[in-house]
Design a protein around this nucleic acid. Sequence first.
DNA 1: ACCTGAACACCGTTCAAGT
DNA 2: ACCTGAACACCGTTCAAGT
Lengths: 197, 197
Amino acid sequence: MRKKKPSERKTNKLDQSLIVHAAIDIIQEEGIDKLTMRRLAQKLNIKGASLYWHVQDKNELLSLAAEEICQRIQFPDERLPWEEQLLEFGRRCRNTYLQIRNSVHVLVATPPITPYRMHLIHKINRLFELAGFKKEDVFSAGWMLNNYICSFILDEYRLADMESDVGVPDLEREFYFGIDVLIKGFRYKLQEGRTKL
Amino acid sequence: MRKKKPSERKTNKLDQSLIVHAAIDIIQEEGIDKLTMRRLAQKLNIKGASLYWHVQDKNELLSLAAEEICQRIQFPDERLPWEEQLLEFGRRCRNTYLQIRNSVHVLVATPPITPYRMHLIHKINRLFELAGFKKEDVFSAGWMLNNYICSFILDEYRLADMESDVGVPDLEREFYFGIDVLIKGFRYKLQEGRTKL
DNA sequence: ACCTGAACACCGTTCAAGT
DNA sequence: ACCTGAACACCGTTCAAGT
């Protein structure tokens, strides 16, 4: 995307937002493999090559989509105890990731360097800092949490497809089991750090 | 792959193993994106189309590679306490995943339905059963462990690339921090289950 | 039994040319 | 300012044809 003069920016923003939403729709309904520049253009009644006026390349498109998806995740009330914030954050992530089917595929395919995604990371880090984690562990803990949530939901997409097998577990229960394992593990680490002092 | 008479099997097995090893070499040295049927054929001094005599399609090739990779992971001594088995298992996974660079990309791209991979899953499940986990939690715990290890190593590949930033953390330490969080979280769940009885 | 050339139906991306 | 047709350099895969 070339830079725009302020006067152009509004319509352009609308165009980009339109494109991004169309892309998310395709991902949601047909899966990420089906999101091709030509298919997306078709949905917008233009030709594939035209997209490159609005967007630098497919990577930028995916990054915009990822940012859009994350913006639906509100960070919980920071006055709650950190355990409850974590639980609530997990719940909210899962909600939007399930609401926008296959959205996690977009997140793992793009680097978390867009504004709102970085904001969420910052909030999580602050949560662990305030909880009392050592500097080095703050990063690890946030990383673990994000990886747990994303990889769980990715598997949840797959398992939800094949409901044929009776052996499909209660995925909601499984999810919170894992969140709780993390919380209890983190709490242990916190106490371990304290008793050392 | 069509079925082979026993007399043919030996040479064929060798061919397939040759192909799979060449594929792993490409993944290791050039990344999984560079593994194309044509590039692989080139490395074997044949043409792309020829590969389809030895292998059904690219998916089968990746599954064979995944199985090959997993066979390098030995399950630890089962007489150790379950915490130590888990720690050792994590260490061994990380070793082979780092030794064969980008191997985790192969694992996450293929379903874990080949013999040795299922064997490893079975071993992990048995570990959690013997440790005293409830039936439903055995599955969740093994799942968490695998997802943690894989997503960590995937990020480790990326971070190890950009050593430019001084901010790259001590990845070995980070890894065992996470394993320990899981172990301590699991232990809590175990006690929780016991006190309820 | 094993390999090949040529083709098919796709990709992402570029770019001169249109309006 | 925005869109297009045509092309480029790729994919995975198939298949008749060679040896």
